[in-house]
Design a protein around this nucleic acid. Structure first.
Lengths: 187, 187
DNA sequence: GCAAACAAACCTACCGAATGGTATGTTTTT
DNA sequence: AAAAACATACCATTCGGTAGGTTTGTTTGC
């Protein structure tokens, strides 16, 4: 049925499309009830085509998670470059990055993904490794207890936004973000 | 095969057993891949027996969630009674209750449950209503920004413990809890 | 430079296991 | 006798994964 068969091959674009649409499908239907067929349809290929790029559902999900993790990592680097203050630089970038995806509410690709990741050992490992590595890298500037609390609070706020049917108001979020930023500076 | 058929009927106990084992199964395998058969087996009844108590899978899950929510609610009341200080009384109880389940790590019945609840609109509603109601009740004592941050941080810590393969050490948790408690008192 | 051969990128068709749910029977309680 | 508390048997479907085909791209041999 699909013409992907007959059009010129674009493996990279197809792969990207699969990752993006898988994330989106996961958001809309929840990762548990995510189906290969739905992802394939959304990406404009067949299930067979999908399984050519990702040999199993698990592989697909993990790839999406790694993809998002990489994006987060890069975004944090970007934010850190623009921060003149050394103390708490990573923490502020972490908070900012989380507030960015928090604003998107449950529309964010992170929503369903990171949620269901907790039931999956492999994904917990990926996340655990990432955060541990990052904290180690910035141990000299970001290990103060206040900064730890601030990061946890950012996680909590992110979580609260997922739990709410309608996310928090922009004002509310701005206020909270300000409070957290203050926390990272007064030390 | 089972003898539940032939033994004396104990609807209340069976119902309780189903709720408990459903929670436990959800923790072990994740709510998404939770199966009625597994729950029924664990509780020592057949799938038919389970479906007699809970007409559908969704109904079972919601019942478990409501059950846990009720327990949390009662525990918080209990903790609040023993707190002499008025300011931040609810917040401290909230934090303490969350640290209790946090200590259990991913063994806690809350783990998989509350996690997957985010993909379910009905459960988000239940949680949302509970926390909103509670915050309204204690508006005069628990609406200070610092308390809000403290509660969010408690959520974040709880979350972090679920993400880690091995939870935090008892020492680490104790330290964090102390920090949060301080946050609720200096105003 | 140009086929032939090979590999990569898809698609179609199908299978089998798992699972939620139904319908109905049997035993116990009231 | 009626209803509640179970069990047994079965159905319909969904969904992940496999097998093998077809088309497109790339490399190799001459």
């Amino acid at each position: 049925m699909s013409e992907a068969h007959r059009r010129e091959k674009q493996p990279e674009q197809v792969r990207r499309s699969l990752l993006d649409h898988a994330a989106q499908c996961a958001v809309e239907q929840g990762l548990g009830s995510l189906t290969l067929q739905a992802v394939a349809d959304a990406a404009g290929v067949t299930k067979g085509g999908l399984l050519h790029h990702f040999p199993s559902k698990q592989a697909l999900i993990e790839a999406v998670f790694e993809d998002l993790l990489t994006m987060l990592d890069e975004e944090i680097d970007r934010l850190m470059e623009r921060d003149p203050l050394e103390h708490g630089r990573f923490t502020r970038a972490y908070i900012d990055a989380f507030f960015q995806v928090t604003q998107d509410g449950s529309k964010s690709p992170w929503a369903a993904l990171s949620i269901s990741s907790m039931t999956d050992a492999r994904m917990r490992e990926l996340w655990s490794q990432w955060i541990c590595g990052r904290l180690e890298r910035h141990a000299t500037t970001d290990s103060h207890p206040s900064l730890q609390i601030a990061r946890y609070a950012a996680d909590g706020i992110w979580l609260a936004n997922l739990m709410k049917l309608d996310g928090m108001s922009a004002n509310e979020l701005a206020g909270l973000r300000n409070d957290l930023e203050t926390l990272t500076k007064h030390a």
